[in-house]
Design a binder for these strands. Structure first.
Length: 118
RNA sequence: CAGGCUGGUUGGGCAAUCGCGGUUCUGCGUUGACGGAAUCGAGGAAAGUCCGCACUCCAUAGAGUACGACGUCGGAUAGCACCCGGGACGGGGAAACGCCGUAAGGCGUGAACCUGCCGGAAAAGGGCCACAGAAACAAACAGCCCCGCUCACGCGGGGUCAUGGUGAAAAGGUGGUGUAAGAGACCACCGGCGUUUACAGUAAUGUAAAUGGCCAGGUAACCCCCGUCGGGAGCAAGGCCAAGCAGGGGCGAAAUCGUCUGUGGACGAUGGGAGACUGCUCGUCUCCGCACGCGCUCUCCCUCUUGUGGGAUGAGCCAGCCCCGGGUAGGCUGCAUCGAGCAGCGCGGCGACGCGCUGCCCAGAGAGAUGAUUGCCCAGGCGCUUUGCGCUGGACAGAAUGCGGCUUAUAGACCAGCCUGAAGA
RNA sequence: GCCUCGAUAGUUCAACGGACAGAAUAAGGCACUCCUAAGGCUUAGAUGCAGGUUCGAUCCCUGCUCGGGGCA
């Protein structure tokens, strides 16, 4: 995922975590906020993994899984959204397919992706 | 061949597609959060942060104290406490052998090797040594012996550590001489600690001999004493740029008319000022009670001409722009190609390591890049119809200023060597 | 990145280097009560792990494993 689609500032993370809506799944938690900057299109994503996920290897693994699972669907998100994906401990031992299912489920519940798309 | 042990190397390989980060080059009717090409992209521990440095800032005349670390010998190194090679004293260690045992087994000797520790208690001082025991660093409980008193039992004084019991530890052990009884008090042999000499070794130390020297404990990973070393903090160090808010300084316009209104005031016109747009003018838009004052509004206090005057270091209001210093968010740098650098070869050294030659340039993120899929192969595991096939499947673990050492985690694979036993030539 | 403190019964805390490791509470049992609670009697239960110093270690030293604070 290219840097222009990422959340990079600590301020952005704080804002999304404070006023965004959250959607939970056993593997991952999604916090989303509709962006109010008019000119920008597409989404910006931040990926986080706390210490409860495991050691540095397992945290990196969780974040890479989430990025890889999101990558094919990033282009189909048209609305301007900022969202944060927070890994949970079970994600460190999950497969890519499980991660993708969890992620699509969450994105549809948050209405970031249309529900009829498969 | 079996068993035990040590050291070193490695830490899956090749290819394809998609994706991510850096560097260099490059393209453009579109200078972009743009596109293209080339190239590079985790480790032996990147980890823990236990030591030592480089580097940076602060402090600093010199020396000392406090505090802390270290302390066998020699070497290596930029430096280091844990590196390398030795030494003393302990602990562990298989087969085999010896002894005991019917046996199971136990005890002892004990290879390679592993492992702990190392100034001083014989230079000074303080503390502690529970329980037991008479006594724990100075002492007589029982016992033995002598003297005095007593008819006697016994009492008092003294000598003694040989004997007894206690304990982790009680003036080295055995035999004798000696004595009232005893005692290294003395003698012989042995043991330990020193001193001297000779030999080996750079040295620690070892071996041997001599000694008309000693044998009153332990503990310094208790305080302490002696010697050596250490200024403090850390890349979130430090340097540069610098929104916004606040602060300081400066520029800046000294007016008329009309309408409405109880006052206060509101609106409009003309002219003016400040700023923005523009290369400039014009023009358009926004702001300004066109005052920083003898100002306006509110609050409080005093007075008394009851709505006048005075006072308050009480609150509030007054366009916009420019400059200045420190500096927050943030950005750039430190910081990624010159280094205690890496690889290969040769030489010296038992080794840590050093020297020489040749070649190479080798990650650099910043919410933090190494991922996904597929195929073939190499180890490994499981199953079977065991020349083989099928299924499965990859340890510990992720750079964050950089190095050296240590510690901890780690599936396996490969190489070299040492010791013991058995068999064979 | 750095600096500190700690680890003891199920829980919260004690304990000069001297073993029967203490207290409160929780747990089990016994009586009491018509039943329960409170109160009474009683029982069991622990030094994070591995080495070392010492006659002897919860305590001293070293290395690990966890956990809590603090600075910027």
């Amino acid at each position: 995922m290219q840097k222009k689609f990422r959340l990079t500032r600590s301020e952005d993370f704080k804002r999304v975590r404070r006023i965004g809506r959250s959607y939970a799944h056993p593997l991952v938690v999604l916090v989303a906020q509709a962006s109010n900057i008019l000119e920008r299109k597409g989404a910006r994503v931040g990926v986080a993994a706390g210490k409860s996920v495991g050691n540095a290897i397992q945290r990196n693994r969780a974040k890479r899984l989430l990025r890889e699972a999101l990558r094919p669907h990033l282009a189909s998100i048209v609305a301007a959204y900022d969202f944060v994906l927070i890994a949970r401990p079970a994600l460190a031992s999950a497969t890519l397919d499980e991660t993708r299912d969890a992620l699509l489920n969450l994105l549809r519940r948050a209405k970031i992706l249309p529900t009829d798309e498969s």
